[in-house]
Design a protein around this nucleic acid. Structure first.
Length: 893
DNA sequence: TTACTCACG
DNA sequence: ACGTACGTGAGTAAG
């Protein structure tokens, strides 16, 4: 960016402390991926860009306060006393801002003993003396005293980038005084934020009236006998305070800076430096707005090339010989494909790195006869491979009939274990977070969304080479980190082998009967139409029931039902709201039913039907192993972990999930109360342990203890409430949450919790201890040493901190349960293989495993599965799994 | 794309 | 005083 030649010089002088404070409180808390807060820097930058663009300055300076003590404290030790300590979320942003300003090539001054105001006052005076104009930017109206014919002052209004421009005329119009009188104004009215007393009882109104009459503080004091009544007494009693306050408010414009205006000449910023700074801060939108993308790209490519030297060999140009010779030395593998669903993805290319050479293979080349050794290597179990998302790679290659084997390190999976909350799993992002030499992002190479294209071969080869080199660079680093955090066991013994088991389950798929779905769909459709008509009749007119906006208008504007809850964009119409509205209008019950039916129809009947693959009549889901922060799996394309079960109408969907071979059965086994059992184990609570050891119904036992009654006195309602309390305990209890769930008052909910903790003191101790531990360590772990960081556990914001506390309580429980079932899956996979069984493990639904089983293995499997699940991990309480069998998933209940 | 709603454990 | 239960994925409407 260049300013061109300004005819007249213009200075922009920014009060750094003032603006960063404003920005911090104006923007919601934001963090970058490494947990650093960046909201104040972002707000500052937005303001800065706006001012630079509008003012087109020739000189720019950001001034900061230096240290705590200034010359003002010499006369008045309480100056700025009583201020709240700067929150750590803001303090940590000062170094970020200073670094960013460097990238902008903007000079920053600070001088011990002086405030930013004084530096700015001094420089603006220098500018005036030299006939230059200046713009002062601050959030503090004290600065208005600097306004003159040459100096205008921008004061932030709301937020940061909305500013108001003050010239002497504007100040005159608004306050009826001159800039010079601003200090008199402060002298009289004081300034609470700086702890400047002024004259007690004199506010802005009175002070302005006095100044209009007397002009200055000194004149007010000299002619105080002309003032009437109580005000006069006040002034007379506080003359010294007024004089001192005026002095404190006066900006000192003779700071011994030893700098000249030449030191703050600004010739614009370097795109590349700013691009780097924005990238670190993850200010992507700003980067885009300033068109730094290209600069970013060049700079990244440059640094990647200098950081890691390798030759790029593309087999379509240079033949296969080199690659085939290098296979035994291969250190890393990339299988590149596009599309999110690995069962439908199209391969783009592969790359391996060996020594100083990266070999790149366009996907189509795999069909070449010369590719045979390479394919043999891919399928060779003993040829170990380090890759990135090898689970996906296996599925992608399987589509071309290639069986990937020998995956012994997956960089993505390792990175997930090291920080499972990290949202960006890309190699590009990973390198960035670890401060390693970067590579281009996939988005910048391929374009995103509709703009996606595979670039010309040379560019593609370069990118894949950079990726495979990055995988190699990351491997040893991540492997070491796993060791040092004692997570190698979890990684090598559980997650990595599990990824192969998962790929097997996904490739196997589950047969879904499209006709059964279609029949159900016809029935649902009929009822949807019926319900739609009934709703129109009840309402008296037609509208789009599926539009929450229209529905809200109908319910609350036209039918005038009471508003229960609002969303940030309008009326809430969710199930909880509708439940409360039922008594008011007959349409409400129908709407609830309509919602149920249309959910079933669109998500399950239509959604699942689309996912049935015509070749084999099966649905192949994709389990993501690196999404859930607790260690659970997630299921996509489609999600088979949320197939309806709670309501009978939806549960019918499960009838369409059938065995793939005639005469086989579906076998489902689920853990009974696994999370509460885990809680009993890790908390060591005697009462809870006893309940499980004696085989009691845990919700009934909870009801007995919370309500202090005998088991015979526990009715259905008490059990229901106790069950909700147990859920609450697992989720990280709060009285508010429980009260919402049970529709009771917060006080009553708090009472339940109190009773619960009295009955189960071990659980209480666990909750207190785990939060304490999280505060101390910054993370919590599961029994298998899976780890989750909770950077917000010490946050000053109540909501963020409370969320982190509940997460601290929940994650070890949910996460350990996830560990256990993952281990059970490994054991089952081994058991099926070792015993030569034909039965197949098809699905995992958090605490449930689904198999298809031939008739002659039914008896074995009914024993084996629950046994393996129960023994997956010995706890202080028994782990139980219930098993059931049917001709479809519905019947296996 | 974002917001809302709702299916599951 | 603050105002959310923990963890997910997917469909629809609407900007």
């Amino acid at each position: 960016m260049s300013n061109g030649n300004n005819k007249t010089d213009k200075l922009v002088l920014i009060d750094g402390n003032s603006i960063i404070f404003r920005a911090f409180y104006a923007l919601p808390p934001l963090t970058n991926s490494s947990g650093l807060h960046t909201n104040a820097v972002l707000g500052f930058t937005t303001m800065l860009l706006k001012v630079l663009e509008e003012e087109k300055p020739s000189h720019v300076l950001v001034a900061f306060d230096a240290g705590k003590v200034t010359f003002r404290h010499e006369g008045y030790a309480e100056y700025k006393g009583g201020r709240q300590k700067t929150p750590p979320e803001l303090s940590e942003q000062f170094p970020l801002l200073k670094e960013l300003l460097q990238a902008f090539s903007i000079p920053q001054f600070e001088l011990a003993g002086y405030e930013a105001d004084d530096i700015i006052g001094t420089l603006s005076k220098l500018a005036e003396d030299q006939g230059k104009s200046a713009v002062v930017v601050s959030g503090d109206k004290d600065m208005l005293q600097l306004a003159s014919d040459h100096v205008s002052v921008l004061i932030t209004r709301k937020g940061v980038s909305d500013v108001e421009r003050y010239t002497p005329e504007a100040i005159g119009e608004k306050y009826g005084i001159s800039p010079a009188q601003i200090i008199d104004l402060k002298g009289l009215m004081g300034d609470a934020s700086d702890n400047i007393p002024g004259v007690p009882g004199v506010g802005e109104k009175t002070a302005l009236k006095l100044l209009q009459e007397f002009g200055t503080v000194e004149n007010v004091l000299d002619r105080v006998e002309e003032v009437k009544g109580k005000l006069r007494d006040n002034i007379e009693a506080n003359m010294d305070s007024a004089r001192m306050s005026k002095k404190l408010a006066t900006i000192f414009r003779e700071v011994p800076l030893e700098r000249t205006l030449d030191d703050i000449v600004w010739n614009g910023y370097e795109n590349a430096s700013l691009a780097t700074a924005f990238r670190k801060l993850e200010f992507r939108a700003l980067s885009e707005r300033l068109n730094l993308g290209e600069a970013n790209k060049e700079e990244i490519a440059l640094s990647a090339e200098t950081a890691s030297k390798y030759d790029v060999v593309s087999v379509s140009a240079d033949g296969w010989a080199g690659l085939n010779d290098a296979l035994s030395e291969a250190e890393a593998l990339i299988v590149e494909a596009y599309g999110d669903n690995p069962h439908q993805t199209e391969g783009i290319g592969l790359a391996i790195v060996a020594g100083t050479t990266c070999y790149v293979v366009p996907f189509a080349e795999l069909r070449s006869p010369e590719a045979v050794p390479f394919i043999q290597w891919l399928e060779d179990e003993s040829a170990t491979k380090t890759g990135y998302d090898t689970h996906r790679s296996e599925l992608v290659l399987a589509r071309s009939g290639i069986a990937l084997r020998g995956q012994t390190f997956d960089v993505q999976l390792a990175a997930y274990l090291l920080d499972p909350t990290e949202a960006d799993p890309s190699l590009h992002g990973l390198l960035q977070r670890l401060n390693l030499p970067p590579i281009l992002s996939d988005d910048s190479v391929y374009g995103k969304g509709a703009k996606f294209r595979v670039p010309a071969e040379a560019e593609l080869a370069k990118h894949l080479a950079a990726k495979v080199d990055a995988v190699r660079r990351l491997k040893s680093l991540l492997a070491e980190k796993l060791e040092s955090l004692r997570m190698h066991n979890l990684y090598y013994e559980l997650e990595l082998p599990l990824s192969i088991v998962l790929a097997g389950m996904e490739k196997q798929g589950i047969t879904v009967n499209a006709n059964a779905l279609a029949e159900l769909g016809t029935e649902f459709q009929r009822r949807i139409e019926e319900t739609t008509n009934a709703i129109y009749a009840a309402a008296g007119f037609e509208f789009n029931i599926g539009s929450t906006k229209q529905l809200g208008e109908v319910l609350f504007d036209r039918l005038e039902l009471p508003v229960v809850k609002k969303t940030k964009t309008g009326y809430s119409t969710d199930a909880e709201v509708l439940e409360k509205l039922e008594p008011y209008h007959e349409a409400v019950r129908l709407i609830v039913h309509y919602r149920q039916l249309s959910k079933l129809q669109s998500t399950y009947i239509e959604g699942l039907t689309k996912e049935i693959r015509p070749e084999d009549g099966k649905i192949h889901t994709f389990y993501k192993q690196t999404i859930a922060a607790t260690g659970r799996l997630s299921s996509q394309f489609p999600n088979l972990q949320n197939i309806p079960i709670r309501l009978e109408e939806g549960r019918q969907i499960r009838k369409a999930f059938v065995p793939s071979e005639p005469g086989w059965s579906i076998l489902a086994a689920d853990y009974s109360q696994i999370e509460l059992r885990v809680l009993a184990h890790i908390s060591g609570d005697e009462g809870l342990k006893e309940a499980f050891l004696k085989g009691m119904d845990v919700h009934t036992k909870t009801a007995m203890d919370v309500f202090r009654v005998e088991s015979s006195q526990v009715d259905a309602n008490m059990r229901r409430q106790a069950k909700a309390v147990n859920f609450g305990i697992v989720y990280g209890i709060s009285d508010y949450g429980l009260s919402q769930n049970l529709n009771i008052t917060r006080r009553e909910a708090a009472e339940f919790i109190e009773q619960y903790f009295q009955a189960f003191p071990g659980v209480k101790r666990y909750m207190v201890d785990i939060v304490e531990k999280a505060r101390k360590d910054g993370y919590v772990t599961t029994l298998f040493d899976r780890r989750r960081y909770l950077p917000e556990i010490n946050h000053s914001n109540f909501n963020l901190r409370s969320f982190a506390e509940r997460t601290a309580m929940n994650t070890p429980i949910q996460g350990t349960a996830a560990d256990i079932i993952k281990l059970a899956m490994m054991r089952m996979s081994e058991a099926l293989r070792d015993r030569g069984l034909q039965s197949r493990m098809l699905l995992q639904v958090h605490d449930e495993l689904v198999f298809e089983v031939p008739a002659d293995e039914l008896e074995i499997m009914k024993e084996l599965v629950p046994e393996v699940m129960s023994k997956a991990l010995p706890l202080d309480v028994p782990l139980l799994a219930d098993v059931s069998v049917g001709t479809n998933w519905y019947e296996a209940k």
